[in-house]
């Protein structure tokens, strides 16, 4: 092998970069976050699977309806009336952003800009 003085270090750097996740994680797969569900509310505005997969799209849709289309009407789910708002509807039940939103969002580094403007509930603990 020729030029091994340059090529081998080059390859080592390459492999180290490629395997970065292996040595960065120290072989620790970590805990999957457990989110805290509201104690007093049993039902969400949509089935759990739906809301879990598409809550951001629902919020986006609400936003468009409320702001752009002026469709602010309440909607009813199982006899309860809801307003289309993150701040006043979602967070009404999910009283803790930290224990609900942030658990998954932090784990997967999803950083939506909701809270730049919208007010999160005051954390009680």
């Amino acid at each position: 092998m020729y030029d091994s003085g340059k090529i081998i270090p080059g390859l080592i750097i390459f492999v180290l970069i490629i395997t970065f996740p292996i040595w960065y994680n120290h072989g620790d797969a970590g805990e999957v976050p457990k989110l805290e569900l509201p104690k007093d509310a049993k039902q969400c505005v949509q089935p759990v699977a739906e809301i879990r997969a598409k809550h951001m799209q629902l919020l986006n849709q609400w936003r468009d309806e409320v702001i752009r289309d002026d469709e602010r009407a309440y909607f009813e789910v199982d006899g309860r009336m809801f307003q289309k708002t993150l701040q006043n509807t979602c967070m009404e039940c999910h009283k803790s952003k930290v224990k609900f939103c942030d658990t998954c969002h932090d784990y997967t580094t999803v950083n939506p800009y909701c809270w730049d403007c919208h007010l999160a509930p005051v954390e009680t603990e």
């Binding site: 996740p21 797969a29 879990r52 598409k54």
Partner: peptide, 17 residues
């Protein structure tokens, strides 16, 4: 639907560890 990012991340981190 069924693209649960938490489960996917657990799998990905699991692969790396």
């Amino acid at each position: 639907t069924d693209v649960d990012i938490v489960a996917i991340k657990r799998l990905a981190v699991g692969l790396a560890t």
